[in-house]
């Protein structure tokens, strides 16, 4: 074989190698690290795939209500903007600041500032098909079904969002929860 074809092969190999490197470097934006609000939104959106709610009224949206957490409510509006759907229904985000305005919703996120009103909140939504979600230490033991927390990586490389689940807080609400969700959660006894 003459050296010219060999040079050509080597050149093509080099360019392919560089192209591969470029593709790696210009790949879609990384998701290795993110702010916590968009991640909570993605988790909440995923919860709708692992939980079944009772049949809704025809044409009604899937409502996610947020109590006392404006940054999360703002992040959740991405679901509305992108016309995402849950249980084959359009998603509506409702930001509220008082327990008497809970109304009908499928998911209620309880912000840290609302912790003091937790007893009245729990009473207001007792036995309703509402998934209660929070992100404050100890909330799951106080009656919230799913509670987010940040867990440091075991190898010390940052921290990741995790959640604990309280089966007792889910009971009696008519929600069917996939076992896959329990598999990745810290389940309270």
């Amino acid at each position: 074989m003459s050296s010219q074809p060999l040079d050509g092969l080597l050149r093509r190999a080099l360019i392919r190698c560089l192209l591969s490197m470029l593709m790696v470097l210009s790949a879609p934006p990384a998701v290795a690290e993110t702010a916590v609000e968009p991640l909570k939104v993605a988790y909440l959106y995923n919860f709708t795939r692992f939980i079944d709610w009772p049949d809704p009224a025809p044409g009604s949206p899937f409502v996610i209500a947020v109590l006392d957490d404006a940054p999360l409510a703002e992040a959740l509006r991405a679901l509305e903007r992108e016309h995402r759907r849950a249980e084959d229904r359009s998603i509506a985000i409702r930001e509220i600041s008082a327990t008497d305005r809970i109304g009908d919703c499928q998911i209620l996120f309880v912000g840290a500032a609302a912790q003091d009103r937790l007893p009245s909140l729990l009473a207001a939504v007792a036995n309703k098909p509402i998934l209660l979600v929070g992100d404050s230490p100890g909330l799951a033991r106080r009656g919230i079904a799913i509670n987010f927390f940040l867990k440091p990586d075991i190898l010390g490389e940052g921290q990741r969002l995790r959640f604990e689940m309280n089966p007792a807080a889910l009971a009696g609400r008519g929600l069917k929860v996939s076992s896959q969700l329990y598999d990745v959660a810290r389940v309270l006894p």
């Binding site: 210009s26 790949a27 879609p28 934006p29 990384a30 998701v31 290795a32 690290e33 993110t34 702010a35 916590v36 609000e37 968009p38 991640l39 939104v41 993605a42 988790y43 959106y45 995923n46 795939r49 692992f50 992040a75 991405a78 679901l79 992108e82 995402r84 940040l150 990586d153 490389e157 940052g158 921290q159 990741r160 969002l161 995790r162 896959q180 990745v184």
Partner: peptide, 24 residues
């Protein structure tokens, strides 16, 4: 492609991958 990921990118991730995302 630096800085925090946007919500729409996270929404399409498989749940197992979502669990591996590091929080800034």
């Amino acid at each position: 492609p630096f800085g925090p990921a946007r919500a729409d990118e996270l929404l399409d991730l498989p749940f197992d991958d979502l669990l591996q995302v590091e929080v800034a």
